[in-house]
Design a binder for these strands. Structure first.
Length: 207
DNA sequence: CTCCAGGAGTGTA
DNA sequence: TACACTCATGGA
């Protein structure tokens, strides 16, 4: 089912090569936090302002007064939480450079990330996959809805495992698949329109 | 006016 | 383990 779903989604939404454009890996780390429960347009405003002020790095974030950082994050919502989270992340990547941290084994790095404020399963995997370039599949709300429509349910780890054992452990494939699910979800998994869901067009098969 | 977006943390049963 | 609640801005 996982492979067939991927084929159908890719056929409809294409390569999505420029799905997540960023100038640096740290920008992707920050984006992973800011996009939590937030539209990307609002995240982009904050990222552009941070770039304009040249403060998209751990050192600059740590140098910002808490109040100023919060004000900067307002367009992305939940700015109290996200400010604390970004501080913790900046602190971590300040004492452990991204090069060193991202060279750690996936499981080790994942646990490190989960220890940071505001980083749960999904955000940890988003950072691993899109910033660190590790083959760690991301499960988000759309993924859960989509699979549920196909009769598949389970907790985060179970769904993640299901994707990873059904796909080649390839970064490009994982990133592309996740992007496809998001784009499909924004189109068909909101409010109504669930009847257009790709699951309905899937040839029945197991696994 | 209402609804909710590429979640996480905390508290309760 | 399973929910309910909270955090918050901005666009439709």
């Amino acid at each position: 089912m996982i492979l067939e779903l991927y084929e159908v989604l890719a056929a409809e939404f294409g390569d999505l090569d420029d799905w997540w454009v960023a100038d640096s890996v740290f920008e992707r780390v920050v984006g992973s936090i800011l996009t939590q429960q937030t539209r990307w347009e609002n995240v982009d405003r904050v990222l552009r302002e941070m770039k304009r002020r040249d403060i998209l790095c751990p050192e600059a974030i740590l140098a910002l007064p808490q109040e100023e950082l919060e004000g900067l994050l307002k367009p992305a919502g939940f700015y109290h939480n996200k400010a604390k989270s970004l501080r913790d992340i900046a602190r971590y990547f300040n004492e452990t450079s991204v090069q060193v941290a991202f060279a750690l084994p996936v499981d080790t790095l994942r646990k490190e990330l989960l220890g940071l404020k505001g980083v749960g399963d999904e955000t940890a995997d988003a950072i691993l996959l899109f910033a660190a370039g590790k083959p760690s599949f991301v499960i988000d709300a759309y993924t859960k809805k989509l699979l549920k429509c196909g009769g598949v349910e389970g907790d985060y780890a179970e769904l993640k495992e299901r994707f990873e054992r059904s796909l080649p452990a390839d970064i490009r494939t994982y990133q592309h698949y996740h992007a496809l699910i998001i784009e499909h979800g924004k189109r068909y998994c909101r409010r109504k329109a669930c009847e257009e869901c790709v699951i309905a067009r899937l040839p029945r098969s197991k696994n």
